[in-house]
Amino acid sequence: MGWAGIGRLVVFALLVAFLTMPDAFAFVFEPLTENNAPAIYNQGSLWSLTVSHLTIVFGAGLASTVLAVALGIFVTRPSGLEFLPLSRSLVNIGQTFPPIAVLAVAVPLVGFGEAPTFIALFLYGLLPIFENTLGGLTQVPPLTLDAARGMGMGPTRRLFSVELPLALPVILAGIRLSIIINLGTATIGSTVAAKGLGEVIIAGLQSNNLAFVLQGGLVVALLAVLIHGLMGGIERFALRRLGGERGGALA
């Protein structure tokens, strides 16, 4: 394990300690409070807010992954090829939609709470995964595909034994990007009453308590750093299984 790994372990331990017994850290945040305001968020358990935050991010991430990868596979098959140029333009247009606008437009359709946040995260998370699935699948060299065909593989086996394994590291990078973006975006969900760490930040903004803002932001940022590292590890593992030298070119 390198220094980065040790650093991540320390961050993880600190984060768990803070979430399970936040009051022990009150002395860190006290200088930021005024008029004897509480230094630690007291309108709910930080642990359960973190759990709901992660649940909604990973739930939406899972849904986006399933749909985006399926769509990416569809438009690169012969039967879906005619949709490939259009889907590329749609992805580019979709990226210009700010997540808050998606969130705000979802509220009148599905009401307040977790649902609009889930929809916004799901839609916003689709784009990086879809783009990387396309990138990964179209990067597979035609020679490799010819070789697979020559070995007598049918289209389905070519997809599952050759194309998807080769594209996997790129797809995983897309999923990581999507999850990291959504960890931050999910905080905005609290403006429409979704349970999550944004609640802490917004409570801080409303009561002018910077200690709340800082601890909410810190927890999300640390989660992002940890998840980034963890998913980076999974990508490196997938690359190593490919035998390294090609992986270097893909990453």
Partner: peptide, 8 residues
């Protein structure tokens, strides 16, 4: 970039 916007 990983710090959520409203927190930053």
């Amino acid at each position: 970039q990983t710090i959520p916007s409203i927190a930053l």
